[in-house]
């Protein structure tokens, strides 16, 4: 097992990411829990034909969703990759805002046939990712039975009820966010910013975590660790308190 590497530059922490890769982006949607600096670096890296996996995707920049009032006008979301024509496909649960106009960048790309958009019910999306990280190849769920979600999927009657077979979802890279880490890559999350980050860390070949600061393992509260460092290949922070 290779030691977790520590970076102080977001762009250099993305080394090895190339065209056609599948990339998960953590957080519920909005600024808390979103690896915003890694996303900006991924845009700068300009890899093409990528498949993105995220939850609420690409609505903050037009609605301010999930950004506090003070930061709303500087909101960043998945739209930056669509503006930059980097995305072949996105798998997410909430890519379009409730209002009809203006269109989000994801909706525009989809309407122009530039991107495939696959919408997965939120709980199913989370479980598909968790399953991949736990070595479970597929699972049955009731969500989506009798709807468009069921189309072209295997179903099974269990105890008289119908279920859909959903497959695990893994990726080449996960870009995640945590509040802080230690030098071993043990991650501590705060509040709702935890959403999707721990499961993505387990479901990817390469996990890169953006943290507000890196502190010594002697100071980290071991009972608060949300993702053990063994799942984290790289940590990157502007604020490294150990040298």
């Amino acid at each position: 097992m290779k030691k977790t590497e520590i970076f102080d530059s977001f762009i250099s922490s993305l080394e090895g990411i190339s065209d056609d890769m599948t990339i998960m982006i953590g957080g519920f949607g909005g600024q808390g829990g979103q690896p915003t600096n890694l996303m900006l670096a991924l845009k700068e890296l300009n890899v093409k034909n990528i498949t993105l996996i995220g939850n609420v995707a690409g609505i903050s920049m037009i609605t301010g969703y999930g950004w506090i009032d003070e930061d709303k006008k500087n909101a960043i979301d998945h739209s930056i990759f669509f503006e930059n024509k980097q995305v072949k496909k996105i798998i997410c649960s909430f890519p379009v805002p409730a209002q009809r106009k203006p269109y989000s960048e994801i909706e525009k790309s989809w309407k122009n046939n530039e991107t495939i958009v696959e919408i997965v019910p939120q709980g199913t999306l989370a479980e598909k990712i968790r399953a991949a990280g736990s070595g479970i190849p597929a699972f049955y769920t009731k969500t989506g039975v009798g709807t468009i979600v069921e189309e072209n999927k295997e179903t099974k009657i269990i105890n008289g009820e119908k279920f859909i077979l959903e497959y695990a979802l893994s990726s080449d890279v996960a870009l995640i966010n945590a509040n802080h880490s230690d030098e071993f890559g043990n991650l501590v999350y705060v509040g709702t910013s935890r959403a999707f980050n721990p499961i993505m860390a387990t479901a990817s070949k390469l996990t890169i975590a953006e943290v507000d600061k890196i502190i010594s393992s002697r100071l980290i509260n071991s009972e608060r660790i949300g993702t053990p460092g063994i799942y984290v290949n790289r940590i990157v922070s502007k604020n490294n308190e150990i040298s």
Binding site: G29, G32, G66, W67, I68
Partner: peptide, 16 residues
């Protein structure tokens, strides 16, 4: 209130 919003504590509607 606007000045007490914390990005780490959000509801499903993206509000704080």
């Amino acid at each position: 209130q606007s000045n007490l919003q914390n990005p780490d504590y959000m509801d499903a509607g993206g509000q704080f």
